[in-house]
Write a protein that binds this DNA or RNA. Structure first.
Lengths: 144, 144
DNA sequence: TGTTGCCCTGACGTCGGCGTCAAGGATTAC
DNA sequence: GTAATCCTTGACGCCGACGTCAGGGCAACA
């Protein structure tokens, strides 16, 4: 029922270094045995898995804090508390904004690509025409 | 027609520090006048604006290099070269993946939020019922 | 008794794209 | 002359979430 840092890390798919880091940030408790080793139980594993899940979603460590505190307060789930729900909502808003921006960028880059490809095709077509292309000065003068 | 670093920076909406950084990365040429000052012309401004535009799109500095080299080779646009088009295409793929991931995360977070809100509503309803809620041990035992 | 394997703390390294400060030279304005 | 504003190089700071190394302790097994 108890385990040391290496085992907990392995069971959560992370590293001991990461757990020490979380502890330094005040997220993971850190009880000790007589010899100074950290010791953890199943509740810590649940805590840690909550953190990792949120991290995988792209939450900052700080944003996982309400969830952790909620669990530590004895609630059944990390998102049983209002503060956690607030983080969810804030994150949803952030995601909506970000996704919108990325879609906008995607559209612009796509348009630029289409334009540039078209320009190249026009050049290629010109070059293929026996009459010769307009002297557009493209690729002119200075070599590399 | 010629300008110093501060003016170029201002005209591109950035800072002298940024231009020196670009130069250190080999992106911006860096001719010098007799007193050691950097000097730039309109072509450098175009170069710089190309870089900035791509940066605003979220391109890494390294990803702007083909565009810069294309312009420096004398092409009319930074995206007149195949290497630039390749960067466009790669970026589009990256964006598609990223947007997809973010949408997936958004859906999951949204679902979690809905679930957690529902759980809270159920609890509230239970608490409101005169007969009393199921003793779910919620909020039980250990205080902070 | 040695070797292996886990654990500890402390501290520096990483990545990108600069910001910011220090210490000094050049140019221009008054 | 000197103050103000530009410019130069060099170098450290920042952010987040750790990775990695150094130097040493504890435990178990041969």
């Amino acid at each position: 029922m108890c385990m040391r840092i290496g085992e907990l890390a392995a069971r959560a798919g992370t590293t001991a270094r990461t757990l020490r880091y979380y502890e330094s940030r005040g997220l993971l408790p850190g009880r000790r045995t007589g010899n100074g080793y950290r010791t953890y139980d199943e509740r810590d594993l649940k805590l840690l898995r909550q953190i990792r899940t949120l991290q995988d979603f792209g939450f900052d460590l700080e944003e996982t804090r309400p969830f952790v505190e909620c669990l530590r307060a004895g609630h059944p789930e990390g998102d049983s508390c209002p503060a956690s729900l607030a983080v969810y909502r804030r994150k949803l808003d952030e995601l909506d904004v970000l996704i919108g921006e990325l879609q906008s960028v995607r559209a612009k880059v796509g348009a630029q690509l289409a334009k540039a490809e078209q320009a190249r095709e026009a050049l290629a077509a010109d070059a293929a025409v026996p009459g010769g292309p307009e002297p557009v000065c493209e690729l002119g003068g200075q070599e590399l």
